[in-house]
Simulated assay, not measured.
Amino acid sequence: MAGRAASCGLVLALLLLGGCGRESAEQRLRAQVAQMQEALAERRPGDFMEAVAEDFTGTQGMDRAALHNLLRAQLLANARMGATLGPLDVQLREDTATVAFTVVLTGGNQRLLPERMQSYRVTSGWRDQGGQWRVYYAEWKPQ
């Protein structure tokens, strides 16, 4: 029994130490995109917007406030929302990055199948601000 407890302790220590390594810029960026996707699924628009830069510009000149309003309106109109992302194409430069991907957005009112669905091709610009990736530009086109 003591040998098993020691083995479990060793495995736990290795897992904790493995998590202590510094994440690469790309890993942090991918994690930020995943957190935004999770915030949308969990209906937390404020958490989603934390990763959006103050000087954000989007499709058709949309600014940060307009993006926030669009997000809140969609959450009000849909009891359930989902965002399924395709593979991320990440292009890193020094402290900026471009991330391109396809996303399928779904929405509806608590039924088993979504009532609305649309696919978009998204190209986004990101900058690293003090270790936090923030999206400062996004363009999306229906597919």
Rank of each mutant, 00 (worst) to 15 (best):
A66Y: 01
A51M: 05
G58V: 04
F48D: 02
E42N: 06
T57Q: 14
V103H: 07
G82R: 01
Q37H: 10
W126G: 00
R111I: 01
T98I: 06
L88T: 00
E42P: 00
R44E: 10
A100Y: 01
L75C: 09
L40N: 08
R30T: 05
Y120R: 07
Q27S: 13
V103L: 09
R121N: 11
V103S: 10
L40C: 04
R121I: 06
T59A: 11
R22D: 05
A73G: 14
Q32V: 13
S24C: 05
S124Y: 00
A77L: 14
E38T: 15
T59V: 12
T59K: 13
P114S: 07
R28K: 12
R28G: 07
L40F: 07
M36N: 09
A73R: 15
R93F: 12
E94M: 03
L85A: 15
L40V: 05
G19C: 14
V99G: 03
P45A: 11
D95L: 14
M49E: 02
G108M: 01
P45H: 02
L76T: 06
G21I: 08
R22S: 14
E38W: 06
G19A: 15
F56A: 10
R43F: 09
T96N: 06
R44P: 00
A34E: 13
S124Q: 01
G19I: 05
R28C: 10
R72H: 06
A41P: 02
D47K: 12
V104Y: 02
